[in-house]
Amino acid sequence: MKLQFKFSKEGSLRFISHLDLQQLFIRAFRRAKLPVAVKGGFSPQPKMSFASALPLGYTSSGEYLEVELTEDLPPREVKERLAAQIPEGIYVNQVEEVPSEKPSLMSRLVSALYLITFTTVQPFDRNVFEDAVKEVLQNEEVIIVRRSKKKVKQLNIIPYILNIEVLPTNNQFRGEMRLHLKSGPGGSVKPTEILNLLEKQNSMEILERKAHREALFIE
């Protein structure tokens, strides 16, 4: 049977990578003695996949995972057994059965909603910042550069942005925005990449930034 799990990732566990999170779930399922199906002969891999990899450092309240079990078990029982074996910081909120012929979560992912909070050195002017956001969104093309160890890649971020909303805060050194960004097989842009761009364009100095994924939207 195929099960879909909705979970959140909070606190210190935002500092573990996507790969580490996979390992965490594999071990938690094994501790809970939940029989995960495997694929591949020589080095069998559990049939387990995530809707989207959450970047290191981000918290989230809307992650999805699907897992195939070799045994039919009530989702409620699975949820309880797993919850007893999962470390603090990961909370499984929902478990439901999905038809096994349904395409993978990853292929059905459409967009994601993020909340970004940051503190600034200079007092933060929300109006100025909002104008800066509008200006960026007016363009047809805004290029950011991604550097990895081996290559430098250019990316136009505009097609990925569905909406950016600058939120009011009660602290003059704090800014907050909610970003609705396209996600899924066609690639994506990280909200922190957009924040970095805005920081540079507005010659702001950001001290601390917090990124939270509020939701993943799946077809």
């Binding site: 210190s12 566990l13 500092f15 573990i16 990578s17 580490d20 071990r27 501790r31 290191l56 450092g57 470390p87 603090e88 910081g89 601390e208 930034r209």
Partner: peptide
């Protein structure tokens, strides 16, 4: 610690809380 962690390599080295 939480202010420092986003700035270092492999921050999970310092978070504890292992199973």
């Amino acid at each position: 610690l939480h202010e420092v962690l986003p700035q270092v390599e492999k921050p999970a080295r310092y978070i504890g809380g292992e199973w």
